[in-house]
Simulated scan of single mutants.
Amino acid sequence: MKEKSEETQKQILDAAKKIFAAKGLTGARMQEIADEAGINKALLHYYYRNKEKLFEQVFEEATIKLLGPVASFLADDSELFTKIRNLCHHYYSVLIEYPFIPNFVLNEASVNPERFFRLIRFEGVIEAKEKTKQQVEQCIKDGIIRPIDPRELIWNILSLCIFPIISRPVAGKLLYANENVQEILEQRADKVADFVIQSIKK
């Protein structure tokens, strides 16, 4: 058997992302993934022994993409308003490129929460949370922002960044008929950052 090819592996992962996003771990079949990748099932098994191994890789990559911006935000040494703007820009750039990620990760996380929380710990989200909590509390003491629970602030930002991606098909029909929703989403990062900052700024 020839050495494993990076190009073939990419084909497999791209196909697996599409199938797993549509059907989840339980509903996806290896034959479907092989067909989508344009290879035979034997070659697919050469790269990945079973569906669970392939799913783990796809799920881990997707979770890291979803959580990466949060980890960067929490560990960022910038002043708070700059951090908020950075987080919004990072999220929109990632989620516009990979729109399947939020639904995929959240659906599968509800099935296997332990796998999800294991990756959160790996990404350092929990460890870095205290740093941002202290920064928010200091901004409140300094009179820069109104009193707000740091967890509520982070949750608000995540909601404003992630929900438009999830609801894109509905928004395209109900709110932005005959408009380019892709362009609207690409412009939302600064609008969301401005909205969040103005909502907490004194």
Rank of each mutant, 00 (worst) to 15 (best):
M1N: 14
E3D: 12
E6H: 10
T8I: 06
Q9W: 07
K10R: 15
Q11C: 05
I12Y: 00
I12L: 07
D14W: 11
A16M: 06
K18P: 11
K18V: 11
I19H: 00
F20I: 10
F20G: 01
A21Y: 04
G24K: 09
G24R: 08
L25Y: 09
G27L: 09
M30P: 08
E32D: 09
E32A: 04
I33E: 01
I33G: 01
I33V: 07
E36P: 04
A37Y: 03
N40P: 06
K41H: 02
A42V: 10
A42K: 07
L44I: 06
H45C: 05
E52A: 03
K53Y: 05
L54I: 03
F55H: 02
F55I: 07
Q57A: 10
E60S: 08
T63H: 02
I64F: 12
P69E: 06
P69M: 06
P69A: 08
A71L: 08
S72K: 08
S72R: 06
L74W: 04
D77Q: 15
D77I: 14
S78H: 14
K83R: 04
K83A: 01
K83W: 00
L87P: 00
Y91K: 03
Y98L: 07
Y98P: 01
P99M: 05
P99N: 06
F100C: 05
V105H: 01
V105A: 05
A109E: 04
S110G: 15
V111K: 15
N112P: 10
P113Y: 08
R115K: 14
R115V: 15
R118H: 15
R121F: 12
E123M: 09
E127R: 05
A128E: 03
E130H: 04
E130T: 06
K131H: 10
T132C: 11
T132R: 05
T132Q: 09
K133N: 12
K133Q: 12
K133G: 06
Q134Y: 09
Q135K: 04
E137N: 09
I140V: 14
K141V: 08
K141Q: 05
K141W: 02
I144M: 10
R146A: 12
D149S: 13
R151L: 12
E152M: 11
L153H: 04
L153K: 03
I154Y: 05
L158I: 10
C161W: 02
I162H: 05
F163R: 13
F163K: 14
P164Q: 07
I165M: 04
R168S: 13
P169G: 09
P169D: 12
L175Q: 07
L175I: 08
N178R: 08
N180I: 11
N180E: 10
N180P: 04
V181T: 11
I184C: 08
I184S: 03
Q187M: 15
A189C: 06
F195Y: 10
V196P: 00
Q198N: 13
I200L: 04
I200A: 00
K202G: 08
